[in-house]
Design a protein around this nucleic acid. Structure first.
Lengths: 211, 211
DNA sequence: TAGATTGTTAATCGATTAACAATC
DNA sequence: TAGATTGTTAATCGATTAACAATC
């Protein structure tokens, strides 16, 4: 049943969830169809039905999917029925932005701790949180059984911080450092490097040096 | 020759480039192999060779790839031989972080303009740039032939801003707004939503409600 | 020369899509 | 009932990998 679902399918579920919540917010309808969802997301309806079929039968022939019900089911599948506390490592500009981001609420996450190694930043308040010393990293994470961390530290210390996080029990890492991190098999890492994303797009652009 | 190269191949080139520059920085060797690169990136050597073969022959049997030469070739393929000016839309916390990010230098990009609609922010200096009124968006982009924009505005105005950017001539957009954007076929959009990335990972986590 | 590694072919693997019976 | 849409199967499409001749 729940055996061996492809990562690529899991990867699309949060996108479906986000669009469904958008639909729910619009309050125009109680149900939607794979066709409508597909059209809004630029995905084929067959793919959406196939993806969902890995987890059960959530729709009704003729009417489609009850939006709120499907939202609940997806939240359950993705383990989002309660809030995950997240450790934020790094209190620079980007750490600041993440600590102040209010998009985590109601989507399953809450920044619970912020760490930095800069004495000038330790003790400073950031959106209700007090920046802690990086020395307290392991103790805090272990005591609270924190499983998720966001890394916004310079590239040259990212691997060291990652190793400490993994040792302390973290199993999911979102990294903004522009390097490939080495982690054990049971740990998942997701990367965000704006430069890499833009470099992918410049391939399709005509370079302006033709003058 | 250069016909119909899969997007997924293009997507990996910046990762190869990043790792190659890392290798160059280490200054331990002049050449590398598809095996070494693959080991460092967690990618098969065959895939790396296959990907590169779409664009030409860059290696030598027995010795591998000359690092600096391959870097130059990848930069040329990705149109990174000169700096692309980038328009940043939104001067909130995240816009602030991006404006201060020094990771763009030497990787092909330079934040050239920052826009916001908040009168309190217009005129403020951000890392050497002066925040401009969003009213000047079209004129600035058209006059400078800007092709790339980064969107860090609230979700509810992201589509409107996108439409304006596209009309003004932008063809590559990196969006941090948590919504799917509609654009014409010739425009490329890349998304960054930390919540979506974390939601993909929670699937693999054991929920802690088992108490 | 012997060892290493490329570029490429063919085989394998996996993901997407088209089509449709079932049924609301 | 007629129309719409699901869940699923089989076909298609595309990407990855194994293997190896060529050659530095």
């Amino acid at each position: 049943m729940t055996t061996e679902i492809p990562d690529i399918v899991i990867g699309r579920l949060p996108i479906y969830l986000r669009e469904l919540r958008q639909l729910a917010r619009e309050e125009k309808q109680l149900t939607t169809s794979s066709h409508e969802l597909g059209r809004r997301l630029g995905i084929s309806s067959a793919q959406i039905r196939k993806d969902l079929s890995h987890f059960g039968e959530f729709g009704k022939q003729g009417t489609g999917y009850h939006i709120k019900y499907l939202i609940e089911q997806l939240q359950q599948i993705l383990h989002l029925t309660q809030e995950w506390p997240v450790a934020l490592i790094g209190a620079g500009y980007l750490g600041h932005a993440i600590a102040h981001y209010n998009g985590f609420q109601h989507r399953g996450f809450r920044i619970a701790w912020v760490f930095d190694n800069d004495p000038a930043k330790i003790g400073v308040e950031m959106n209700g949180l007090t920046v802690q010393s990086i020395d307290e990293l392991e103790e805090t994470i272990q005591q609270n059984h924190t499983k998720i961390a966001i890394i916004v530290v310079p590239a040259n210390v990212a691997q060291k911080i990652t190793d400490r996080l993994v040792t302390a029990g973290v199993e999911s890492i979102l990294s903004y450092a522009p390097i490939n991190l080495k982690v054990p098999n049971h740990v998942h890492v997701s990367y965000s490097d704006p430069v890499v994303q833009m470099q992918q797009m410049t391939y399709y652009l005509q370079p302006p040096n033709s003058r």
